[in-house]
Design a protein around this nucleic acid. Structure first.
Lengths: 224, 224
DNA sequence: TAGCACTGATTGTTCAACAAGAATAGACCC
DNA sequence: GGGTCTATTCTTGTTGAACAATCAGTGCTA
C-alpha cells in the first residue's frame, strides 16, 4: 500500500490515485479541518486537475468515510459526531481486541508495532503531537495486521483515519494522545512477553478509557 | 440503506447513486459474471449515462471491492481468488462471531434474522438458489446488525457481496447454499433460545465448513 | 415578520476532444 | 514454426466547456 502520511507518491502511475493520496494527506494533517466545505472549483484549481477527476477522487474518499457527500451540496471534510465516535470505538473493540486475542505469538508484523511505539515516544518527547497521532495509528494498524487479512486492515484503516478527524475536531491532540503512548507499549509488552489474551484485555481497557476521553473532550467542546 | 437486490430506487435523488445501485444489482444477480471486463463506452451507452458519471460509480464500486480497477486497463468484475476467499472468511470469523457472542439477548434486529431464515427456506423449497443466496446474505448481515454499528455493517456488507461473487464464480449455488439454510436456523435458535455464546460457537463451526466447501469447489474448478 | 420570487453560486451531468497506455496484427528475422 | 519488433488500433485517463438542476441568500410584498 502507498505511504499516505509522508508525501511520497512514487508508485502512483496516474494522476488520480496520487490525487487521492494528496487529499488524504491534507485531511490527516489537519489542514482542511473537519467540517470544511470542499468546493469543487476551488480544489480543482488548487490541485491543478479538472473537476471531473476531482469528483472521482471525492467518491473514493467518500467511501472511505473521510468526506461527507450530500447530494447537490457537495462534499465536506467528515466531522464525526459523538454518535460516530461511539460507533468507531465499537468497531475498534470488535476488531482490534479480537484480532489481538487470536494472534499467533511471534507474528512478523509485531516488529511494526514496536517501531510505532518507539516513534511515538520520540515524537512525544519532541512535542510533535501530530506525529504522535500518526505513530499511534501505525501501532493500531499494526495490531490489526496480525490478522493477516487485507480486508480487515483496509476497513480498519479507514475507521482509524476517521477517528483522527475526530481528534482534530476537538483540537486536544496532546491531551488525548499523551496517556496512550505508554499504554501502547504495555499492550505490546503483554503481547510479546505474556499472552495475546492478556494483551487483548489490556487493549480493551485502553479503548474504554480512550473513548471516554474523546467523548469528554467532545462534551466540553459542546460538539454534537 | 437502499434495497439493493430488489430494484427499488425511490430514494435516489440523483442519477449517479441510482447508477451504483443498478450496477450492484447486476453484479449481485450474476449477470456480468466475475472477471467480466467492463468497458466504459459500452456500459455508458447501456445505462445511458456519460462516461464520466459511470467512472464515478466505478470508483465507489472499486472501494467496495465489487470491481477491480487496474490503471490504464479499466475495471472488471471482481473475481475472488482462493486467497481472497480465505481472507473473506477470516473477516467473517472475526466480525460475525465476535458480534454474535457479545450481542444482547433480545435485540430488536433479531427479527430480521428470523425473516431471512424463513425467506431462505421458502426459496430453497422453490429451487431459487439465487434468492437463497440473497436471503443468506440478509441473515448474516442481520447477525452483524446486532452490533448496532453502522460501520461494521457497511464493511461487512461489502465483504459479503464480494463473497457472493466467489459463489457465482464457481457456479455451484445450490450445492454451496443447500446445507446452510438449516444451519442458519440453528444459529438463530441458539441465539434466541440458548445463549449468544453458544450461537457464536455454532456459527464458527458453520463458517469453517462453509469455507471448506467453497475452497473445495474452487479446487475442483481449477480456479486460482 | 412570514412568506415569496429573484438572483447568484455550486453541484450534477453531458459531450467532444486529445494524450497516453495497452492490445492486436503483421512484418520480419532466425 | 517460433519469436521479436513495430505500426495500427482500441481503450482508458484527463481536460475544458457547456447547460440543467438545486441550493443559499436577498430583498420585496403583504
Amino acid at each position: 500500500m502507498v505511504e499516505t502520511a509522508g508525501g511520497h507518491y512514487d508508485g502512483d502511475v496516474n494522476h488520480e490515485s496520487s490525487l487521492v493520496n494528496r487529499l488524504t494527506d491534507r485531511l490527516i494533517a489537519g489542514e482542511l479541518p473537519p467540517g470544511t466545505r470542499l468546493s469543487e472549483a476551488a480544489l480543482a484549481k488548487e490541485f491543478d486537475v479538472s473537476r471531473n477527476t476531482l469528483r472521482e477522487a471525492f467518491r473514493v474518499l467518500g467511501e472511505q468515510g473521510l468526506v461527507d457527500h450530500v447530494p447537490n451540496r457537495g462534499v465536506s471534510v467528515a466531522s464525526p459526531s459523538t454518535a460516530d465516535v461511539i460507533d468507531i470505538y465499537r468497531v475498534r473493540r470488535t476488531i482490534e481486541c479480537t484480532v489481538l486475542a487470536h494472534a499467533p505469538r511471534n507474528h512478523p508484523r509485531a516488529a511494526d508495532m514496536l517501531r510505532a511505539v518507539e516513534e511515538a515516544k520520540a515524537a512525544a518527547e519532541a512535542g510533535d503531537w501530530l506525529q504522535v497521532g500518526t505513530s499511534n495509528m501505525k501501532f493500531h494498524n499494526g495490531v490489526v495486521a496480525l490478522s493477516d487479512s487485507v480486508r480487515l486492515m483496509r476497513s480498519f484503516g479507514n475507521v482509524l483515519a476517521e477517528l483522527r478527524l475526530a481528534f482534530l475536531k476537538v483540537e486536544l491532540l496532546d491531551f488525548l494522545h499523551a496517556p496512550f503512548v505508554e499504554r501502547n507499549e504495555e499492550v505490546y509488552s503483554a503481547y510479546v512477553g505474556d499472552s495475546p489474551a492478556a494483551a487483548s484485555a489490556l487493549l480493551a481497557n485502553y479503548l474504554g478509557d480512550s473513548e471516554r476521553q474523546v467523548l469528554g473532550a467532545y462534551a466540553r467542546a459542546g460538539q454534537g
